[in-house]
């Protein structure tokens, strides 16, 4: 089937997609790289001067960078822990026979379809609000002092919101993986005298490892870019208590109009994301032939 003629046609069919993505990759990214070496403020157009590595120096030595970096790590790791542990537990539960599996599945998956701005605002106002939020009402009913989540524990609150959005994703993928577990293999192990616990450790866990890896890596890519949730709840505050790298770059460039500094931050974010991406690509590449 693969004649010379069809190869030429194939190349023609692939090229629009490749060229577009190539442009999308190269043009803006090289502009960012270029800007990152300039002293360039949007309020003073035409005043750009060469800055060398100054922007990087200022960005990387800014205390805000360190708090943003640690906030990013805490956010990503925190959400991952909640969603992976919760997801494994939920997937194991939903894999058992029970009444109404279809409906429960639909309810559990729902938060993933809620747009980030909606979920952030719903949690912020209707649940975490210290006066009229659901949690405040519960606290008052129990005779406790309502807790102002977003002022006193901003990062934890954002972790909770983001975890609520991503738990369904982890659950769904892990459940799909569980359901593809080979029943005969399980039965063979049972015949070999393996207990429920041993079967879980030696068969289920290795089987889930790949799915967990996929969940961790894909979520990491998205979690490094969490933005809307922060924008509509805390605006990165108080101070920089809930600022992550993405939000810091946004604030630097579009709130402070510092194109140079923002670009340097953007390049740093790209480098961080690439470190994660390398692992993900290897992993998916391996599965491509299977």
């Amino acid at each position: 089937m693969a004649t010379q003629h069809s190869r030429t046609a194939a190349r023609l069919m692939i090229s629009p997609a490749v060229i577009l993505l190539l442009l999308w990759m190269i043009v803006p990214l090289s502009m960012t790289l270029y800007f990152s070496f300039l002293r360039y403020n949007l309020l003073m157009p035409g005043m750009e001067t060469w800055a060398g590595f100054d922007n990087y120096y200022y960005f990387l030595t800014d205390p805000a960078f360190f708090s943003a970096l640690s906030n990013t790590i805490i956010l990503v790791v925190g959400v991952l822990l909640i969603t992976v542990i919760g997801g494994v537990a939920l997937a194991l539960l939903l894999d058992q026979p029970f009444w109404g599996q279809g409906v429960v599945r639909v309810l559990v998956i729902a938060p993933f379809f809620v747009m980030p701005t909606v979920s952030a605002l719903v949690w912020k106002n209707m649940f975490m609000n210290p006066v009229n939020g659901m949690f405040a009402h519960i606290a008052k009913a129990l005779g406790l002092q309502p807790f102002d989540f977003l002022s006193h524990a901003p990062l934890a609150s954002i972790i909770l919101i983001v975890a609520w959005q991503w738990l369904p994703f982890a659950t769904l993928i892990l459940l799909t993986a569980l359901q593809s577990l080979d029943r005969e293999q399980q039965e063979a192990a049972e015949m070999d005298g393996a207990s429920v616990f041993a079967r879980f450790i030696y068969l289920t866990v290795p089987h889930l490892t790949r799915a967990v890896t996929v969940v961790v890596l894909i979520q990491t890519i998205f979690l490094l870019g969490v933005f809307a949730e922060i924008l509509v709840t805390t605006n990165g505050g108080p101070g920089t208590a809930s600022t992550n790298i993405t939000y810091l770059v946004y604030a630097q460039s579009l709130l402070n109009y510092d194109v140079g500094g923002g670009s340097a931050g953007g390049i740093v974010a790209v480098i961080l994301a690439n470190i994660v991406a390398i692992f993900l690509m290897r992993m998916i590449g391996k599965n491509l032939d299977a």
Partner: peptide, 13 residues
């Protein structure tokens, strides 16, 4: 891999 590029990296351009 293009999907892995963080959006902030190209926000300004």
């Amino acid at each position: 891999s293009t999907k892995m590029m963080p959006a902030v990296g190209v926000l300004i351009p």
